[in-house]
Amino acid sequence: MKNKKIKKWALMLSGLVTLLMAVGVLALCTGSAGIELKTIPGILLNGKGTADYSILIGIRLPRIILGMSIGGALSLAGTLLQGMFRNPLVEPYTLGISGGASLGVCINILFRFYSVIGIIAYPLSGFSGASLVIFLVYSLNRGPQHIRSNRMLLTGVMISYVASSLVMLLMAISKTDDLQNIVLWIMGSLDEPNTVLIRIAFFGSLAGLIISYFFCFDLNALMLGEEEAANLGFNTTRTKKILFITASFLTGLSVAVAGIIMFVGLIVPHFMRMVTGPDHRILLASSFLAGAIFLTLCDIIARVIISPLELPVGVITGIIGGVMFIWALSRKQVTL
């Protein structure tokens, strides 16, 4: 039984890694420059200094890495939140975490913190906003013993509304230049020229995955409810705190670097749960990989659908994610 399980999980993970690489290669040869697949190895090996080489290494590759990191991070954040709330409809957006993050980034753009402390101001402001919301949601719902999941979710939704209203308020009072910056950023794009931000996103999302794995058994036990998890010997309050911080870190990072990208945190964990089952030992990694695949694929579509123009990737994830979710709802009972 154990060996069968290991085999099954290994097969799933290698399937996802293969798919991720395939999507990566597809993304590498997609674009207006028309670089063909068979010429790519030659360009990469011998073409240093050519225009094609700099397109592949300087433009497309960073974008692919960013897409995979953000997709993985958002999907992982959704998996963590869904596991803790035992609610398949929870994700960074429904809890207001991304609302908080976007408010933080807006404030950063308006008050130009980035010109004082550098590009790091973006992820920092995103993380601060996200953490502030988590702290608010958490402290507003402190029961004598436990955190009340349903009330917390409703508070999150309300905070999300307040945050987006505040973003609109900031947009209304901002100057034209800033307004354009905010609008472009909110639409969500993986077109990020700054390699520092891409590196932060890449290592940040991997760190999030590693931290989550320390709590995979806690998450499995939490599926039975907080009381049952406590009876199985888990310190649920501590686990929830750490995982909330992890989820807000992942969300803050994603929102700061790529803007608002909807549904990845909702749809990917939901589908992966159907494929792998609810065991977080496999679900965390497979959701991360599937999120990376999904967002890279959406970005390819966003780049080619109205070529040579580009759509914001958030539009594609919104449409695909929403439609797929409605379809999933109609055919199967939604459960964890």
Binding site: R86, M223, L224, N231, R273, G277, P278, T335, L336
Partner: peptide, 12 residues
């Protein structure tokens, strides 16, 4: 070990 009154339906 504690057996609670109700067991929530989970997909495992």
């Amino acid at each position: 070990a504690i057996v609670m009154q109700t067991t929530d339906p989970v997909a495992m």
